[in-house]
Design a protein around this nucleic acid. Structure first.
Length: 282
DNA sequence: TTAACTGTTGATAC
DNA sequence: AGTATCAACAGTTA
């Protein structure tokens, strides 16, 4: 599920409540979901929460890092010291009782607040690693799409040798981090580019349009708190995102393209559902 | 009932 | 180095 805007939203909410919390208990319900030495977590305090690509990083006071990847269905739900989700405010209907059927890890803090890691499909993980491991993992990633490090010159250079369809290349996190299936589809629609075009066939002005479209779409996603279909993505308070209400293509099969009015098509590309307008995306 | 579908990525073989 | 395909898993939909 979560692409950069969803993970960024989760990070921002976590940053409001988690730094300063001391972990007093951890329950791992699914071994596959956690790796690392649990003893190095107990009685340590989380000092910061950051994000790189689609990964969260809980920084601990012992210089270790709890890296978190939500993959398709991971979610983090915060329960406050009074045992309330969302501080008692209304939450999305999809929220389940905790711990639930899909709760894989449960953290309890010294003030009785809690964090639940739910993950239906068990692709996601939380790994306790040292700083070198963080550096090693992050070194494999291209720059975040919304970072100043992602420059037009860099992008032009990366596309030059790739004959794959452009959609697959912009979803390749070694090229640029943060775009998943939803935002990749919408980025290509905004840039009026066919997802099937070979990356290296793009003209300079097309690459520039694509570059700017990617930043615009991702910023819109962040602004609206991410995308929620079927409640699979919820923020830490159980709230849904709002991007699905303004999506250009994703989930809009047969509905009119906002640019030209032709019906949005859904096809398969690289094994992924791909929504696009065959009239104006060329 | 079965097959195909789902927001991610990693391994493997060419 | 770049590419194509499949696999990890569980649930929903056609």
């Amino acid at each position: 599920m979560p692409e950069l805007p969803e993970v960024e939203t989760i990070k921002r909410r976590l940053k409001e409540v988690i730094p300063g919390k001391r972990i007093t208990k951890v329950e791992v319900f699914k071994e596959k979901s956690f790796s690392g030495d649990l003893k190095q977590l107990i009685n340590h305090t989380i000092v910061d929460v950051t994000r790189r690509a689609k990964m969260l990083n809980f920084h601990l006071d012992n210089d270790l890092h709890l890296l978190t990847h939500l993959k398709m269905t991971g979610q983090l739900i915060y329960v406050d010291g009074d045992q309330r989700i969302g501080g008692g405010h209304p939450t999305a209907d999809w929220i389940e009782q905790l711990p639930g059927k899909h709760t894989r890890i449960h953290y309890i803090f010294s003030d009785n607040s809690q964090l639940f890691f739910n993950d239906m499909r068990i692709f996601g993980w939380m790994r306790l690693v040292d700083r070198q491991e963080v550096v090693r993992i992050e070194s494999e990633l291209g720059p975040d799409v919304n970072s100043p490090d992602f420059t037009l010159d860099y992008f032009v250079d990366k596309l030059r040798r790739r004959s794959q369809p452009i959609k697959l290349v912009i979803m390749d996190n070694a090229v640029v981090s943060g775009l998943g299936n939803i935002y990749a589809c919408d980025t290509l629609n905004l840039a009026r580019l066919s997802p099937f075009r070979a990356a290296k066939s793009l003209f300079a002005n097309e690459v520039k349009n694509l570059f700017e479209a990617a930043k615009a779409i991702i910023n819109k996603g962040i602004e609206l708190g991410g995308t929620t279909f079927d409640g699979k993505y919820l923020d830490i308070h159980g709230l849904a995102g709002e991007y699905q209400g303004v999506a250009l293509t994703y989930g809009r099969e047969n509905l009119p393209c906002y640019n030209c009015g032709a019906p949005i098509k859904k096809v398969k590309l690289g094994g992924r559902g791909t929504y696009y307008c065959e009239v104006c995306q060329v």
